[in-house]
Design a protein around this nucleic acid. Structure first.
Lengths: 344, 344
DNA sequence: CTGTTAGCGCTTTCAA
DNA sequence: TTGAAAGCGCTAACAG
């Protein structure tokens, strides 16, 4: 092999195999009819020349990149890496590659990624929107881009959505606490403008109402979906001793870690002194042992379902009927909750 | 805007601005001379048509994709996500996009990614090789692909490498334990064929030799760089009570988590009953509080340096001189180590 | 089953 | 400072 040689093109292969370029294309891509004899000759020629097909040319001509993009808000959160696995598995099985993008809940970063993905002509985008205003989604839709929104809703947009049952799960978690006798339950949620933050608060409120418990708005706190967010909210909560909180509902897993850290600093034991429930499970890597009572979302399935839907949309003409797929959560009762007033 | 219209091309913009396509190209890319007057006209036309440049065509013609790939072994490990941040920041600052790939230390998966990246004509690859045989790297080099190897060495390959000082860091950690009086120190390392596993064992042995401590090969254990790997190795170690281990050296952060979990099950307290040191720090998300004594690698800088080098290689002609950049580790003594025999 | 022609959308090269 | 022509490498469309 001459290392200075330019990479072989489909024409070089064609010449060597004594056929036309299009025949090489058909043979290598297994598209269209090619006799076995010719295919073998082509494959051999391609191997001898170490032919590496140029996807750029292929995509330019065929208007298909075989690429999907997954845009999430925090790649360090295991919930999203699990979703990503589901996406990758389904995509790869259908011959698609996945480009991962991370917005850190930052709309500007999201806008930059979207612009880049449009220029690269990806075939479809799985988007966890940084904000619930549908501007970004509408932009993509106007450009004919196939989009499936993941995890969150967006306002005033007709777009496919695959998400977990936030309201339901929140209701279950809250009811669990109520059944244990808790009445002073605080919920520490994410940013106000994010649909899942709102829905988890809504589920919490619904459960309280159903049990005839008054809602104390001081117990409803909004912050960041992060460890420091959970930490800060818990501190703010505990310094108001008048609130007499007996249980905390963390609206996601990272908030829960912050909650636990703050509680420790206040020398409050879980569940002896205070009960904790969490939306989203944490993998064992993050915890000493399965300990937290959680509403677990099927993260992997979320990624799979969303990708399957997106791939379907890519195949279909554009006038499909919008779908909203809501996957149920599972209440897993472990050791971070106990009856209020139970003797230690 | 007609939503059914095909996306505008550079020719449409040219027509609307009353210039030639190449002038549009020059104006929008700020390459070559364009009068201010013309540039403004072009920009306006582009905006009116909502022109989205087609990167595929651009790349096909210019032989540049402005894309780098980062191939790591475990995207769930915060060490690698931190490296990734460094890579992304430097790449974006130079107008490059980064494609993230995850091999799970699996050579087959790695091979598939590499093949795909070649077909996509990325401009360069940052590779954490799944194995230390340089086959993968040699393949890339033969194809003229610019490669910088990250974190690990590969055998018999002249290729740029950016890595942490594994041997050094391991020596420091071991010496720290020796100075605390420990003599029965076990090291739980990664797979044997991975250079960093070997180097961390080597540093450990060097420190022991320098202090005239005999090496007990039963205390040198190889396994996976994962939580379960650390857990399994610790179990195996502790069930041989004859070994009388007083300290454990975990060769990476995830192994350490597994170690701690196993120790807890054996009801061994850290550091009262046994000391633990770790190669690679863990972010606060994973720990209750900064607790572990570690040799911290500058993960973010590793990513930055490697990317800067790769970008330089992309600009240069191919006959550059190979470089090996070794970044020092920092010994951070915290609360997981104490003097052997110290009264509790 | 195989080939010819044309062209995807852009930029290189050369010319003015 | 601008433009015309050519072509990157591949496949759609049509023909045989």
């Amino acid at each position: 092999m001459n290392p200075n040689a330019k990479p072989a093109t489909i024409r070089d292969v064609a010449k060597r195999a004594g056929v036309a370029p299009i025949t090489v294309s058909r043979a290598l891509n297994k598209s269209g009819y090619v006799s076995d004899e010719v295919r073998i000759r082509v494959e051999q020629a391609a191997a001898e020349l170490e032919f590496v097909p140029n996807m750029l040319a292929r995509s330019l001509r065929s208007h298909k990149t075989n690429t999907l993009a997954l845009i999430v808000t925090d790649i360090t959160n295991p919930f999203w890496t699990t979703v990503a696995r589901g996406v990758e598995d389904v995509a790869n099985a259908s011959g698609y590659q996945v480009v991962f993008c991370n917005t850190d809940e930052n709309e500007e970063k999201q806008a930059q990624y979207l612009s880049m993905l449009l220029r690269r002509r990806v075939d479809g985008i799985l988007l966890v929107p940084a904000s619930s205003t549908g501007d970004a989604v509408r932009l993509l839709l106007a450009k004919q881009m196939r989009v499936v929104v993941l995890d969150r809703r967006v306002r005033g947009c007709t777009v496919d959505v695959v998400r977990g049952a936030s309201t339901d799960g929140a209701r279950q978690l809250t009811r669990h606490l109520l059944e244990l006798g808790h009445r002073r339950i605080a919920i520490l949620s994410g940013p106000k403008h994010v649909s899942v933050s709102e829905e988890r608060v809504m589920g919490y409120m619904q459960a309280l109402k159903q049990m005839g418990v008054d809602i104390d708005t001081r117990l409803v706190v909004h912050g960041q979906f992060s460890v420091s967010g959970g930490y800060i909210m818990t501190q703010a909560l505990l310094t108001q001793s008048a609130l007499e909180v007996t249980a905390i509902f963390a609206a996601n897993n990272f908030i829960a870690i912050g909650v636990l850290r703050a509680l420790r600093e206040f020398a409050l034991r879980v569940p002896e002194d205070i009960s904790v429930v969490v939306f989203d499970d944490l993998p064992e890597t993050y915890t000493w042992e399965p300990f937290l009572t959680v509403a677990a979302q099927p993260a992997y399935e979320l990624g799979k379902e969303a990708t399957a839907l997106l791939l379907q949309r890519i195949k279909e003409p554009a006038d499909y009927e919008i779908q909203e797929i809501v996957l149920p959560t599972e209440l897993i009762v472990r050791n971070s909750t106990r009856s209020v007033g139970q003797i230690v």
